[in-house]
Design a protein around this nucleic acid. Sequence first.
DNA 1: GGTGTTTTGAGGTGCGCAACTCATTTTGAG
DNA 2: CTCAAAATGAGTTGCGCACCTCAAAACACC
Lengths: 346, 346
Amino acid sequence: MAETLTTVALTLKDIAREAGVSLATVDRVLHNRPGVRPDMVRRVREAIERNSFQPHVAAAELARSRARRFAFVMPSGPNPFMQQIEAYLGEMSGWLSARRLKVEMIATDVFDASVLAASLEALSGDYDGVAVVALDHPAVRAAINDLVDAGAKVVTLVSDVPSARRHHYVGIDNIAAGRTAGALVGRLVGGRSGKVAVVAGSQGLRDHAERIFGFNQVMASEFPDLSVLPVLEGRDEDARSEQLLARLLGKHADIVGLYNVGAGTQGVAKALSEAGRDKVVFVGHDVTALTRRLLLQGVMDAAISQNPGHEARAAVRVLLALARGEPILREQEKIRIDIVMRDNLP
Amino acid sequence: MAETLTTVALTLKDIAREAGVSLATVDRVLHNRPGVRPDMVRRVREAIERNSFQPHVAAAELARSRARRFAFVMPSGPNPFMQQIEAYLGEMSGWLSARRLKVEMIATDVFDASVLAASLEALSGDYDGVAVVALDHPAVRAAINDLVDAGAKVVTLVSDVPSARRHHYVGIDNIAAGRTAGALVGRLVGGRSGKVAVVAGSQGLRDHAERIFGFNQVMASEFPDLSVLPVLEGRDEDARSEQLLARLLGKHADIVGLYNVGAGTQGVAKALSEAGRDKVVFVGHDVTALTRRLLLQGVMDAAISQNPGHEARAAVRVLLALARGEPILREQEKIRIDIVMRDNLP
DNA sequence: GGTGTTTTGAGGTGCGCAACTCATTTTGAG
DNA sequence: CTCAAAATGAGTTGCGCACCTCAAAACACC
């Protein structure tokens, strides 16, 4: 009836006895210190393995008096999504200080590869872990690899650089997000035929490009009655998005759906309402004060969201687990694609 | 540019000096041990407050050699959702043992108030924390209050007992979940008019009743073209659900939507397909192997889900934070209402 | 005042590990 | 075999706290 999910606790002393060596040797192996013969290393490793030994996190934490430093490299400028991430990190301050963690926010122009790369290089040696909203560019990739070589743990946040040797990516699968948006637009249009508009920041951004890719995939294969118009590039700016969309709406009277891939949401909503096209199915991204209002008003029909609080906490937890050598709870740290409609607004 | 989110680390000694008392007194206050004059308690509390002192989690953990014991009181019998929770707890075993936590699963008949109450009473004194899938009944409420009085931390899981003095509820807002289901059915039906069927386990279960309440709310106010048929009570059994639904489908040719509130999904799907009514919009709950398949096949259109992994981990984290006296990260532990469609299947 | 009770202080011990020193043993090269 | 270098063992210290004991001080009551 009652079934225990855990086992008894071993200590380093037990491992030393098991392996037939001294505590000092176990310590050397555990921390990759030099001066141990390979076969000794093996014996210790095997003893650890055999007993599935877990160092006591609390004891290890207590013994290393040095606090850990993490850096969050984020876009400068007003970006509500990033501001939310920052706010959630602030909310964790008690949690962080109880674990003697120092988290520093570093604002930089993440859209300029050389600037971003320079910012990253500057961190080398000073931080135990770095979370970065990364542009996928050779210079950035090299900077990330250098950080890793210098011993820092690195996670990419929101936007990935798969080709770099970063330890982890905290963010959503953007192709799947685009597919989800496509399915929502298609389903919510409800059998009508017509055209679908797409507004993005820029197709040069990896995440936007991937979302559009997924969106088109679904539209093509599942909603043949809907035709997707060429992507408008609004640069995530309200004014430009509004202007471009207004012109498009004027040209096509049969637009029934709209996918806003990035920001510029205010402009998109304004163009829709000023054209009196309130019935167009409008799907966008992220839950902010604005999109929340639009959802409640019925202007937006659904928002695809990646929980910024979860992303902030997952990034910290992953960095900490990496630094401690603990395993990562993949299931826990995975960022899900949330569909948010009026009634399940968080 | 670089902004630090944390402050320097104080120790208990600092607090003692600040408050002008000895370490022993601080210790007594911190652990609610008797024999301290009220004004002394206040002085210490204020010093802690003033410096926003956080005890070092690792040191505290290390010092208390006694492992913590948590009990999870869950329904007996085959319930995929509960099995998932159990599986996720198993995946955490490394995490748990590193924190010297012992989690035990206790299966009982949670649908029989007196049996459940007796199971809870039996735990008293043996556990530091209890998570329970609770029936809302006076006997259960009393048992929970007794546990709390005995010093255990108690969280309700999935199903709440708001009137009991449990410390926390880990689960979703079921009224909002029902509302979300209603909005989905209404929107996905796409403007057609017709009838909507509702299959539940029992209207006596609090969570089912709340979901139906929310569902009806939305249907009545927002989708006047759809009329909701009387609720079928399938007792979460496949055979019974199938039989009842088959009869209903036979009677009404104009059923365009279906909300399955609880389990019995297999039977519901079978009734639909055997009646050749594949185009009925079908919204249900939870992502299991079955609903996953049905979503991929297009039989189900959407599933409202509460992430069982998140629930399991949140319950453990909340119990641990409560036991340690740490603050709870409410935002982190809140269970969200996930809308799962084919393309954002987790 | 004296008595008993309550409150407070001082101090010790140990949790498991990291990080270090220094003495001793083993190894390998010549 | 010799000698230096490498490897290993034995041991210490301290991280911050929980938990405990015992003595001293403050207090209440008669």
